[in-house]
């Protein structure tokens, strides 16, 4: 009798352990960790605050021209987007003014490969109003629109891309004052992006 009880006890224990393991694995595979998702969404809002700052969004337009300044006015000299590369046109190429680095003595910003973001990465509407957090998030995470960047590649882009980093070293305006910076540091921006990526790049609901 004692032997039967022992066998029943061990069998129950094994069954319980098996069910626990299956449940935990199932939960990890298919059920989002709500805490992590919430943290990821909060991190995304920090990322969004940078993406919609004038230093970034001025070249993520929906129109045929870039913008400039904190008031996001149309770029001087009738500059236009040009072809798919967004580098302007032959007589008005971005590189015709924007050199490899900032020209603080003349107030012209510069950085490697200065160009407009592609239209698929527009973060504002045709009336120059920033898109919602949800809409920008959907665009940024859509690999058919973002040069096929997955989460880790987006993190690398935010961490290393020269024009992204330029936003925190934008140089001086023609009047000698410093251009404004995004609301958080580059380190905080990268940390927020990492947290968002680790949470699975969640996007807010809504339009």
């Amino acid at each position: 009798m004692r032997r039967i009880r022992l066998i029943l006890f061990v069998s129950a224990a094994v069954l319980t352990l098996t069910l626990y393991i299956v449940e935990v694995r199932f939960a990890r595979a298919d059920v989002p960790d709500t805490t992590t998702t919430a943290q990821g969404l909060r991190a995304w809002e920090q990322v969004y605050s940078v993406l919609t700052h004038p230093r970034c969004i001025n070249c993520h337009t929906a129109t045929d021209y870039p913008q400039q300044g904190d008031d996001r006015r149309r770029h001087v000299a009738n500059v236009v987007r040009g072809g798919a590369e967004g580098k302007g046109v032959p007589g008005l190429n971005c590189a015709g003014c924007h050199q490899e680095s900032n020209a603080d003595s003349t107030g012209v910003p510069g950085g490697h490969n200065w160009h407009l973001a592609p239209l698929s990465m527009r973060w504002q509407d045709i009336n120059d109003r920033p898109l919602s957090s949800a809409a920008v998030c959907r665009a940024v995470t859509d690999r058919s629109k973002n040069h096929n960047l997955d989460g880790p590649a987006l993190l690398k882009h935010h961490e290393e891309e020269a024009l992204v980093k330029w936003a925190w070293n934008p140089g001086r305006r023609p009047d000698g004052t410093m251009r404004t910076l995004p609301p958080i540091t580059h380190e905080q921006f990268v940390a927020a992006t990492r947290q968002w990526v680790e949470a699975g790049t969640p996007c807010p609901a809504g339009r």
Binding site: L92, A95, C97, E100, A103, T106, G110
Partner: peptide
């Protein structure tokens, strides 16, 4: 003030010589 710098039409009034 347009000149060509490495073949690119460039506004010479705002390009410092050091660049």
């Amino acid at each position: 003030c347009t000149v060509h710098l490495a073949g690119i039409a460039t506004r010479s009034c705002i390009v410092p010589i050091s660049h």
